[in-house]
Design a protein around this nucleic acid. Structure first.
Lengths: 175, 175
DNA sequence: CATATACTGTACATCGTGTCCAGTAATTCG
DNA sequence: CGAATTACTGGACACGATGTACAGTATATG
């Protein structure tokens, strides 16, 4: 059912409902309800299940490069896989459903923020990142443009975005 | 009807529908449909009508201060008025309704981005802002954290946010 | 006075959600 | 082997929201 749900979103649908998931998975609606409380819960679990291997940051020579690669991996995921549509739909759902909102923050956003906190802490240890930074602000500055462009589509979500983000933010982060 | 719609959102409702708007405005549902195609359209017009005076940037000594004040005004609007809830709801609606999405970008986001472009251009003229910047990236970096926190609520939307954003981004923007 | 415009209120078709229930197939366990 | 648990089916139903249709009323305009 998780695969079916993800495939549905891939196929272009953002407002995927229980009916569509059940039909696509070849099971009855009742069965879906037996395992998940809502369509959004299915989509969220499908999202997490397919991406739990995208958390670690690849080794890189410098902290700046490591951040660039980490953001690049996220942008690629959002651009080239159903993850983008999934995130858009779940973000919309989170507005009316606080449970989805909390799950999205705890299970999607938070782990990625933690990964970057570690990158920054390591950078501070190596003398590449300024000490005494407010990590939460920095992480917002790094991640937010990606979600901003994902949601509003006022600017294209290009592969160059991480480099552009770092061009603006890195001078305020570097030691 | 616009006032009624805005008041409804203020009262805590994010998923405001045609029924609620009509009831709150004291008119029949048919009448609302006569003037707007959807509930989101009413809310959007109400939002724009109440905020078209918040576009200009106040005069400030330095470009950095001007940016801080401009972002501060936006944060205050989002924090202390129905604008925050309105934006959250409309952003959610924009995911399934492209018309709302375009209107949100063209009539809400774009004018504010243009105001900041002017601030930055003026700053470049005064020698306070680096020349050759990619304005779109800078503007994303400045605005995105506000919308990011608005949507996910993973971090509080405090009055200090603009200062924190500038602490990270200004070094990459200053001449 | 006649007409156009705005509004009313109900009714209706439609869709998606979430629950309920009786019945079936398969698996596990005594 | 037989009994009980577990998973699933599919149809029915209540519910709420959306959007349209229509016949009728009030009000202002000319």
């Amino acid at each position: 059912m998780l695969d079916a749900a993800a495939d549905l979103v891939l196929a272009g649908g953002v407002g995927v409902g229980i009916d569509a998931i059940a039909a696509s998975a070849g099971v009855s609606r009742t069965t879906v309800y037996k395992w998940w409380p809502s369509a959004a819960a299915v989509l969220l679990e499908g999202l997490l299940e397919r991406t739990h291997d995208t958390l670690e940051s690849p080794p890189a020579a410098t902290t700046r490069e490591a951040l660039g690669e980490y953001l690049g991996k996220l942008v690629a995921l959002v651009r080239d896989t159903p993850v983008g549509a999934l995130l858009r739909g779940l973000t919309a759902a989170s507005v009316t459903d606080p449970v989805v909102g909390h799950a999205l923050v705890d299970d999607w956003l938070a782990p990625r923020r933690i990964a970057v906190v570690e990158l920054l802490a390591e950078g501070t240890r190596k003398g590449e990142v300024r000490a005494g930074l407010n990590y939460d602000s920095v992480i917002d500055a790094l991640f937010a443009p990606i979600y901003y462009r994902l949601m509003y589509e006022h600017q294209p979500l290009t592969a160059q975005l991480p480099a552009e983000i770092l061009a603006v933010c890195w001078p305020g982060v570097a030691a």
